[in-house]
């Protein structure tokens, strides 16, 4: 008994190595999962902070394009605030002047880049609208109308997908 006790105390006093094998397994699986999600998802547009997108059963992938974000009364183009729309403001018709001016500039730039690349014939102006789920349709309608007037006719309305 005494020998066994001595043996136990002797083992406890020596430095023991922490078994890291199970932790390594978890981290390896986690790393592979995260890398896979990067490769498969490949988000071409990122949600704009402050915009709660509506949920939808749609599973079509958004395409890389210019992003217009709408929340409250604010309209942003590629992260810059371009217009503040008052509700029921129809003095200037459906067109949102600030947005239209910036969209024209953006389109001219994109067209110039496409021309320099020699892809002018294939250039299609595309836009992705990230509209907050609480904005009235009236505002969304005006933004779509303005995009149409600036030549952006292919519009993606970003939503949160089912999966």
């Amino acid at each position: 008994m005494a020998r066994r006790r001595r043996k136990k105390s002797g083992r406890g006093s020596s430095p023991t190595a922490l078994p890291l094998t199970s932790m390594m397994d978890i981290l390896t699986v986690l790393l592979l999962f995260l890398l896979k999600s990067f490769v498969v998802e490949g988000e071409v547009i990122t949600p704009v902070p402050g915009v709660d997108l509506p949920e939808s059963s749609s599973d079509s992938k958004p395409r890389a394009s210019v992003v217009v974000a709408i929340f409250d009364q604010t309209v942003m183009l590629d992260g810059r605030m371009v217009a503040d729309v008052e509700p029921n403001d129809h003095v200037s018709g459906m067109l949102i002047e600030g947005l239209a001016a910036q969209l024209d500039l953006t389109r001219a730039k994109e067209l110039e880049i496409a021309r320099l690349r020699g892809e002018e014939a294939d250039y299609v102006p595309r836009i992705a609208i990230q509209g907050d789920l609480e904005i009235p349709f009236e505002l969304l309608e005006r933004v779509m109308y303005t995009c149409n007037q600036s030549g952006f006719r292919d519009i993606s309305l970003a939503v949160i997908g089912a999966s």
Binding site: E43, L53, S58, A128, R153, I155, L157, V159
Partner: peptide, 10 residues
């Protein structure tokens, strides 16, 4: 969050 879209052609 998995982003999807509704496509419009004006």
């Amino acid at each position: 969050t998995h982003l999807a879209s509704h496509e419009f052609s004006l």
